[in-house]
Design a protein around this nucleic acid. Structure first.
Lengths: 227, 227
DNA sequence: ATAATAGTGTCTATGAGACAGTATAGC
DNA sequence: GCTATACTGTCTCATAGACACTATTAT
């Protein structure tokens, strides 16, 4: 675009610009289920409906800064994994005004969430993703569509990245990690094959489970190396 | 977010909002090379630098509408394949003002581009992607970073989708399609293996190449079925 | 016939999937 | 010993990779 075109378009766009927000889809695994950090809306529009946390992006703030601020404000968490998901630009997303939403997918091990549960600022709650996607539930705005998209992306990325590790604590057993994979992929896995695949990504520690009713499992850590 | 928070943030954001633009990365294969539709900037900032076409998103316009408008204005093309790439939100992307850029990756068979070459409106030109990414070239804004990202995405999607078909005309030979794959993947492929993989995605036509210096190749069409 | 590229048959290596077996904790 | 789950060895099968061979056009 040359500057003439630029100024033309800038002049007209100056009259009315859209707002930009980030929507935060914070996933965790709790009670053997994939769950999402969710807010019940207290006022219209969509009063009483479930929605994701989100914040507007300030003019002097990058998208990532807005995401970190939003996650901190809504869950108290810092330093958790997140990645950009998709940008939603439909005209009627919000009945009040034009809002462009840049959505982010975040993952947190449930232990970190539980830690801050007592001192939580906002009215966030964990809901099962399957429940949120079921026909019984209507979510606010276009949030159900976005959640469906995020669920798919998560499933795909589990297959070809190490993203599942973002949902377990620093030290974990292989049966536990396998369960996380099974929940994310929504299918049973064979122990042997899972371990063959995961082996290069982990290192043994000298710790083991204690007071189990059965043979205890070794703890592992994520390997630091390549990939 | 409750409405109180909403209004608070809306009030403050009302003072100054950012502009939203779509950046268009239109790829094609020409002269046995992956190329990009590029504009040489005529005025500052980045005068004389190469950049992608792009347009601002109007308040009453969806992202996809802006993309279609931009592609039409800059190349004259309609109905070509595009998908959202990534949203870039750094503060200093454009020295003049805060612009959020939603980038889109588009693909067009070179035949369609050539057709409109005569009547082209704006000063677009095809450049080799390798050249644009080389150290010899500096692109305007953060466009080199975006192009690098798009190049990677394109390579990945060729592996697990049928995206490469968007770069060939309706009827094509398998050697030609293979060459497209090789250029996108940046590696040689074995004929036999390529054909085994591609076979379920295509259907034979009864046409063949003519006046070749060697054995002529059959024309195929894309299969309509699943996936 | 020769050159050039289209197209085919088939062996091998790699990795995913499946299942049977052994090991170790509590009781 | 029994039960429950951890952990291991190994077979099968589908798919990717490699290469040798045959086919058809123009000159």
């Amino acid at each position: 675009m040359d500057d003439k075109t630029f100024l033309q378009q800038y002049d007209s766009s100056k009259f009315e610009k859209m707002s930009v927000a980030v929507d935060l889809l914070v996933f965790t695994v709790a009670d053997d289920t994939l769950k999402l950090v969710t807010i019940k809306r207290a006022e219209p529009p969509f009063e009483g409906f479930l929605s994701f946390p989100g914040v507007f992006v300030n003019i002097g703030e990058t998208l990532e800064e807005a995401v970190r601020r939003g996650i901190k404000e809504e869950t108290g968490l810092e330093g958790i994994y997140f990645e950009q998901l998709y940008t939603w630009g439909d005209l009627d997303r919000d009945p009040r005004m034009r809002i462009l939403s840049v959505s982010y997918l975040a993952l947190v091990p449930v232990e970190k969430l539980k830690f801050i549960a007592g001192e939580r600022v906002s009215e966030t709650k964990l809901y099962s993703v399957d429940y949120l996607l079921s026909k019984k539930v209507e979510m606010a705005f276009d949030h159900k569509k976005i959640l469906k998209y995020a669920r798919e992306r998560l499933k795909n990325k589990v297959e070809y990245t190490k993203i599942a590790f973002e949902l377990v604590p620093e030290e974990f057993t292989l049966p536990y990690l396998q369960r996380i994979y099974e929940i994310l992929l929504d299918k049973k896995l064979y122990k042997t094959n899972f371990r063959k695949k995961i082996e290069p990504m982990v290192v043994e520690t000298d710790k083991m489970e204690t007071s189990t009713k059965h043979r205890p499992s070794k703890f592992y850590k994520r390997a630091k190396n390549i990939g």
